[in-house]
Computed example of a mutant assay.
Amino acid sequence: MSYIQGYDPQTLREIVDVPQCRERLADLGDQRSLPALLERVWLLKVTGELDDALRVSEQSVRVARMGGPRKDLLRSRVLHATVLQCRGAYAAAIQELTTCAEEAEGQGWAALAAFAYQHRGKVFYDTDDFVNARADFKRALFLRQEAGAPEDELESTLVAIEAAERRRAGAPVVS
């Protein structure tokens, strides 16, 4: 089930049904499996509970580091970086996402590399660095196409590219 109803054209953040997200958080409770932790991080982040999101994201990285495949660790680190971004720790988020994107690409994990580049682009976008944001969104699009990503992922990346181009040109982003 997708909780994402769309993306804000100004911020590129997910638009979600907050009550539905909170209901899912209650369903997850204190489950400690990595998939449950990752879902909790995302739900806490999109509902604005950033302190809890940070705590759970750090826990997910520890769990992944102790007992999961390398891909799971990278996913956990990317999600952790998105929480850092939401908290305004842009330099730390960029550093983490750069490391994750490069490692995923080096391993040939196109979908995971695209995930990292897309989010690094969003950090650049938040810092008004629209040139680097656009470059990362374009890289994410290429990798997503290479990985055979679903249409909704390709569409979200195309929307991000367009938003970065408009902002770079000084034009307002339209919905």
Rank of each mutant, 00 (worst) to 15 (best):
A116N: 04
K138H: 10
S57R: 05
A26Y: 07
Y125C: 05
V56I: 14
F124L: 09
R87M: 12
V46M: 05
A53P: 02
K45M: 12
E162K: 12
A111V: 04
Q85W: 13
R65N: 08
A93K: 08
A164C: 07
R40M: 00
E14H: 04
E146Y: 04
F115N: 08
E165M: 13
L97K: 03
T99P: 07
T47D: 04
V46A: 00
A113Q: 04
F130Q: 09
V63P: 05
E146W: 10
I94V: 15
L84A: 12
V18G: 02
E58C: 06
E153R: 14
T98Q: 12
L84E: 09
L154D: 07
E39D: 11
L158H: 11
W42Q: 05
L112E: 12
L154Y: 02
R32M: 11
P9V: 02
V159M: 13
L112R: 13
R120S: 03
A111F: 10
K138F: 02
R70L: 10
L74P: 00
R13I: 09
P35D: 08
G88A: 07
E23Y: 11
K138V: 08
L112Y: 03
K71P: 02
S175N: 10
E146I: 06
T157H: 02
L97M: 08
T127S: 13
E49K: 06
F115D: 14
K122N: 14
A53K: 01
G108K: 08
E146R: 14
L34N: 02
R75Y: 08
E96K: 09
Q95D: 15
T98P: 03
C100T: 08
D128G: 01
D72I: 02
F130D: 10
E49Q: 15
F115Q: 12
R70K: 10
A111D: 14
R168A: 15
A135V: 13
E102S: 09
V18S: 08
T47G: 04
Q5E: 14
P9E: 06
R40H: 03
V123C: 04
T99I: 14
Y117A: 02
R65E: 13
E102T: 13
M66Q: 15
V41F: 02
V131Q: 12
D8Y: 05
G170F: 01
A135Y: 08
M1T: 12
G29E: 12
S33W: 04
S60G: 01
D126Q: 09
D30W: 04
E23R: 11
G106P: 06
R65G: 08
R55N: 11
A92S: 12
E146S: 12
P35Y: 07
G148Y: 08
Y125R: 01
L141V: 04
D126W: 10
A147T: 01
Q118V: 07
E165R: 11
A64T: 01
D126R: 10
D129S: 06
M1G: 13
R87E: 07
G170W: 02
R166T: 02
L84V: 14
G121T: 09
L74V: 11
D52H: 13
L141Q: 03
D72C: 09
C100R: 05
L84C: 08
L37E: 00
R13P: 00
C100I: 07
R24P: 03
V131H: 13
C100W: 06
A91Y: 09
A93M: 11
A169R: 15
V123G: 06
S76Q: 03
R75E: 14
I15Y: 00
A149M: 05
Q10L: 08
L141I: 01
A111L: 10
E165P: 00
E102M: 14
A93D: 05
P19A: 03
